[in-house]
Lab assay of single mutants.
Amino acid sequence: EPLWIRPDAPSRCTWQLGRPASESPHHHTAPAKSPKILPDILKKIGDTPMVRINKIGKKFGLKCELLAKCEFFNAGGSVKDRISLRMIEDAERDGTLKPGDTIIEPTSGNTGIGLALAAAVRGYRCIIVMPEKMSSEKVDVLRALGAEIVRTPTNARFDSPESHVGVAWRLKNEIPNSHILDQYRNASNPLAHYDTTADEILQQCDGKLDMLVASVGTGGTITGIARKLKEKCPGCRIIGVDPEGSILAEPEELNQTEQTTYEVEGIGYDFIPTVLDRTVVDKWFKSNDEEAFTFARMLIAQEGLLCGGSAGSTVAVAVKAAQELQEGQRCVVILPDSVRNYMTKFLSDRWMLQKGFLKEEDLTEKKPWWWHLRVQELGLSAPLTVLPTITCGHTIEILREKGFDQAPVVDEAGVILGMVTLGNMLSSLLAGKVQPSDQVGKVIYKQFKQIRLTDTLGRLSHILEMDHFALVVHEQIQYHSTGKSSQRQMVFGVVTAIDLLNFVAAQERDQK
């Protein structure tokens, strides 16, 4: 057995438009009618409502009807409940999964919650491996369901041993009777949507819809739904939504950006999952974080739909894509998950301010006199920076000697690579993860907040409520011999709460 199987392995699926269902090699399930009293909570997966979006479509000038398939009504709160249950049931049916076995899954959280929910009911041990950027709410729900959680670096490539995929496979090879159901490759993922989600949409719309818009992560949702719609409703256009920084969209030119990270969760990847059939997507749109969270908040405030950030991405694209539809036509959007997962993220004004998705003037509360002053007023001194090749031991000596707790790590040209902190280095040394002679590049981390000289002290204040420091950066445009230009970030300084307090105190003292 291989040590790991690539999540982007070539698909062996034989589905073709027009091929009889009787030739399918898979076990198919028909939607079942729910009894009045459910035998367990797993029976509350599927049969989610279709809700008309009344205000947002009109606000953006849509002539067509805009409908939302509300997947956050599933038992675990997301569309991923469907595939989690289906993968477990299919693994039980073919004898792969037996009582007492362990389920391991690399996930952005929602599939993990679905699997942990099913594992709690069915009696399996469950280990979820997820990147650090995923919300604390997801972690809390997983723990409450009895799952064990392993976190991995957000910026690790999918084929790196440190990625959530790599760590999951390492655990599988170490733990007896453990299984990775593997949402990236498992046919049960798109089949769950082909058999149930798509049929529900067709039934709820009486077979009449002209466009379907869905955000894409593993691709199982859009693949399964689109294949069924292509068979039953061939005139329906399928629109895929991919965040900026991901590479799922086609044509490839759409993916060209210097951005590699994004805040919206559960969609987009740096590889093409095996289950994603991009041939059934008629057109791709890219979405960005700001519009995703703005539209998610709009869905909550104006439509009462308590959905997550990827739902915002989907609707932001839908109001663009559906401009081509006329009166009497219908566009369906998939709202994948609930706001429950993001209470401390985009639902929080403070978080939105820190990330730059909300401006101070958007909030009406009274601010102190210094709130709208610029960061450049602080008069920061030149920063202490270190090269990635310097040793951890030497870096600790320098920081202690100069009285700093942290320093930016830059390359020879001064471009920011990340940050090192005294606390992080000492804990890594004590844990045996690094040696004093190791290069400081081994303990770089990139989960820090950046701020510009033109940003306000109010925004800085919000950042420092949650973080010990902020890195002050400025952009530099560099022209190359080819005539092309590129933008790079340079370090201007490091600012802490002490710097802000000293500035405010000094100004008030001078005024007296």
Rank of each mutant, 00 (worst) to 15 (best):
L457I: 12
Y269Q: 02
M490W: 10
W284Y: 02
Y479K: 15
G268H: 06
I239C: 02
V491L: 13
K286S: 02
R459F: 11
K433S: 08
A322V: 04
I267R: 02
Q439L: 09
P408R: 02
G414S: 14
P243V: 08
I267L: 02
G308N: 02
I444P: 14
Q256D: 07
E475W: 15
A292K: 02
S287H: 08
E324C: 02
D467P: 08
Q354C: 04
L276H: 12
V491G: 11
T482K: 05
F346L: 09
A497Y: 09
L306C: 14
A322P: 04
K446F: 11
F469Q: 13
R350F: 05
K355F: 11
F448C: 13
V375C: 10
G403E: 08
S287M: 09
Q406N: 08
V472H: 02
L429E: 02
Q326D: 08
L248Y: 02
T391H: 13
G328V: 08
Y262T: 10
L500P: 13
Q489G: 02
E465M: 02
E361H: 06
D499R: 04
K359L: 09
L254Y: 05
V339I: 02
V410I: 14
G328S: 11
L363V: 09
S486K: 14
G432R: 10
E250F: 02
D362T: 12
E291I: 07
Q476L: 13
T454A: 04
E252W: 09
A292H: 02
M298R: 10
A292N: 04
P436N: 05
G458L: 02
D282R: 14
L417W: 09
Q439T: 14
K446H: 11
T454H: 08
A292W: 04
Q489L: 14
A505R: 05
L358A: 07
T385I: 13
V386T: 15
V375S: 09
D510L: 10
E250N: 07
Y269F: 05
Y445I: 12
V440T: 05
Q376R: 14
D270I: 05
P436A: 10
A301M: 14
M352F: 02
G268N: 02
Q447Y: 09
S313R: 02
L335D: 05
V420F: 12
G266L: 06
Y269A: 06
I416L: 12
T274A: 02
L387S: 11
L363R: 10
F295T: 13
E360R: 10
P251D: 02
L248N: 02
D438C: 09
K446Y: 14
A321K: 02
F492R: 12
G493S: 14
T389V: 13
L422G: 09
Q323L: 13
I272R: 06
C392A: 12
F295S: 14
L384F: 09
A382G: 11
L453V: 11
S348C: 04
A505V: 14
L501E: 02
I396C: 10
V473L: 07
S313A: 14
W369T: 02
F293Y: 02
T421C: 08
L358Y: 07
V332F: 02
G245V: 02
V415N: 02
D277P: 06
D510Q: 02
G393D: 06
K366P: 15
S313I: 02
L471I: 14
F492K: 15
W351L: 02
M298Q: 02
F285Q: 02
H480C: 11
L325N: 02
A407W: 05
R459K: 14
R340H: 02
W369R: 07
L306V: 02
E412W: 09
H372F: 12
P408M: 02
Q450F: 12
L305S: 02
T421P: 14
Q476V: 08
L276F: 08
F293G: 06
E252H: 02
S287N: 07
I477H: 12
M490E: 15
W370V: 09
V409T: 14
T344V: 02
E397I: 08
V440M: 13
F293I: 04
F404K: 06
L471H: 02
G308T: 02
S246I: 04
E361V: 11
L457H: 02
L501N: 07
R340L: 06
K449P: 02
F503A: 09
T261I: 07
L399H: 02
D270S: 06
M419C: 13
V409M: 13
G328L: 02
S485Q: 08
S437M: 14
E265S: 02
T496K: 09
V332M: 15
Q450P: 02
T454G: 08
Q302I: 05
V281P: 08
G493C: 14
K283R: 06
I444F: 02
V491I: 14
E291P: 05
E465I: 02
I390L: 12
Q447D: 13
V491Y: 02
Q406I: 11
I300V: 05
A318F: 02
D438W: 15
D362N: 05
S481A: 14
V241S: 14
E253W: 02
A316T: 08
G441M: 10
T421K: 14
Q487A: 11
L254P: 02
R278N: 06
E508T: 02
D242W: 02
A292I: 02
Q323C: 12
E361Y: 10
V434W: 02
E475M: 08
T456S: 08
L426T: 15
T314D: 05
G441V: 07
A506C: 10
L335S: 05
H474K: 02
D277C: 05
G304M: 02
G312P: 13
L399Y: 14
I398V: 08
C331I: 08
S246V: 02
L347K: 15
I390T: 15
L306S: 04
Q256M: 08
K442H: 10
Y269V: 02
A292Q: 02
Q478E: 08
Q487P: 07
H480G: 05
I477C: 09
E397P: 04
S461T: 07
T454V: 14
I398W: 07
Q259V: 15
L276R: 06
Q406C: 10
E263R: 02
F404L: 13
S313N: 05
W369Y: 05
Q511P: 02
C331G: 07
L429G: 12
T385P: 02
V410D: 10
H462W: 15
M419S: 12
E365P: 15
A431L: 15
S338F: 10
Q435P: 10
L387N: 09
L325D: 02
L347H: 02
S481W: 02
L387W: 14
D455R: 05
T391R: 06
V332Y: 02
P383C: 08
G245Q: 07
F285G: 09
E377F: 02
T364M: 11
E290P: 12
T279W: 12
T482R: 14
A301T: 02
L430T: 12
S428T: 12
Y479S: 12
A413W: 08
F492S: 13
I498R: 02
Y445W: 02
L254R: 08
E361T: 14
T389W: 02
Y269I: 02
V275A: 09
C331A: 13
V409L: 05
S437A: 13
E475S: 02
G245Y: 02
E258C: 13
D411E: 07
Y479Q: 09
E291F: 09
K484V: 13
M352C: 06
G414H: 02
T364N: 02
P383S: 13
I334K: 02
R374S: 10
Y262F: 08
H474Q: 15
S338P: 13
P383V: 07
G418V: 02
N424G: 12
L378N: 04
S486M: 13
Q435D: 14
E327M: 02
I451W: 02
L373I: 11
E290R: 02
D455E: 15
P388L: 14
S348Y: 04
E263H: 09
A311R: 02
L353V: 12
Q256K: 15
Y342S: 06
D499A: 05
P408G: 10
N424M: 10
F271N: 02
L460P: 07
S486I: 12
F271G: 02
K402L: 11
G414A: 02
F357G: 04
V386A: 11
T389R: 14
T482A: 11
